[in-house]
Design a protein around this nucleic acid. Structure first.
Length: 310
DNA sequence: ATACACGCCTGCTGGC
DNA sequence: TGCCAGCAGGCGTGTA
């Protein structure tokens, strides 16, 4: 399941191929992948055909491509989504191909972008762009000039900035933790507080700072919340560095899911295995219809402000 | 406002 | 061998 690092790898791979490209044809193979497209503004195909792509931008796990029309093509990969850059005549396993864009790029010629999504949790949509509240760029991209620069798709506007965004406010993150009575892992997964973190990197960051995911967020001292945020950044950057090395710049097989297996994970998926730090057998526990992974010795629930003990 | 349950989805795995 | 429950889990929506 792609989280921030995987989506950034997709964005970075896509950007050079789609920036400046003209959409020449659109094929909708699976209408359910357009669940988040508001058809009252026009049909998906019609809003894209003949339109130029200006850039590839990302905030958290959301990815969008500003268009010459002033709108944006927004994508979320969900659990199993991929955006694959292919040659126009690519043939192969198309069982899970949901959407297909034919592009004409001034330098690279004809290209094809396939939205492939086995579970159909992901989606694509053409959405309108709104100005950002703080006037800062809406998300991360290499290109920073254009009408779209300080804007965000309507359906992404409620998502907080991610921890790698220069405009992310560390102070507001700390305040949000201090206000919440729920477990710190829930808060990490709340995309309205901080975006880009999913189950895997939440578990990894919590392990790194020896925190129990059910530790009430409000019991963390400022110092502890700072340590947690630093750990989150470190985990995301490490994954990004590892995931970003394995794709070909020309024809990117931008695979959000496969990158995970090359990462060295300390907590996620390690139930029954020794904690890399202390050797204690790690456990898996039910959490919000999924699982949490932790070391029962390093990551204990602490009473009150004792959460400061590392 | 915050918190939590639920539905959406497919394919793989393990138990009986 | 075949069937089915369980699991993977982000996000929008609905309810309290």
């Amino acid at each position: 399941m792609p989280e921030l690092p995987e989506v950034e790898v997709v964005r970075a791979g896509l950007a050079p191929a789609v920036t400046g490209a003209l959409v020449t044809a659109v094929e909708v193979l699976e209408p359910r992948s357009l669940r988040r497209h508001d058809a009252t503004s026009g049909a998906f195909e019609a809003l894209l055909t003949g339109v130029r792509i200006e850039a590839a931008v990302r905030r958290g796990k959301f990815l969008w491509m500003p268009l010459s029309t002033g709108r944006a093509l927004v994508g979320h990969l969900g659990m199993s989504g991929q955006l694959l850059l292919r040659t126009p005549d690519h043939a192969g396993d198309d069982r899970h191909a949901r959407l297909r864009l034919q592009l004409e790029h001034p330098q690279h010629g004809e290209l094809r972008v396939d939205f492939v999504d086995q579970r159909i949790f992901g989606s694509m949509a053409v959405d309108r762009l709104l100005p950002t509240e703080d006037g800062a760029p809406g998300g991360f991209s290499a290109e920073v000039t254009g009408e779209w620069a300080a804007s965000i798709p309507a359906q992404v506007a409620h998502i907080a900035r991610d921890p790698l965004d220069p405009a992310f406010s560390d102070a507001r993150f700390a305040e949000a933790l201090a206000r919440r009575g729920s477990g710190v892992k829930r808060v990490l997964l709340d995309q309205g507080v901080v975006s880009g973190i999913g189950n895997i990197y939440a578990d990894e960051a919590l392990w790194a700072v020896r925190l129990h995911g059910e530790q009430p967020a409000s019991t963390l001292t400022r110092r502890r919340s700072r340590e947690l945020l630093n750990a989150v950044r470190k985990v995301l950057e490490k994954a990004l560095a590892e995931g970003g090395t394995s794709f070909d710049a020309q024809y990117v097989n931008v695979n959000g899911a496969s990158g995970y297996f090359s990462h060295s994970l300390n907590a996620y998926g390690r139930a029954g295995k020794p904690c890399p730090r202390c050797g204690t057998t790690m456990v898996r526990e039910p959490f919000m219809n999924r699982s949490s992974h932790r070391c029962p010795r390093c990551q204990r629930l602490r009473m009150s402000r004792a959460a400061t003990i590392a």
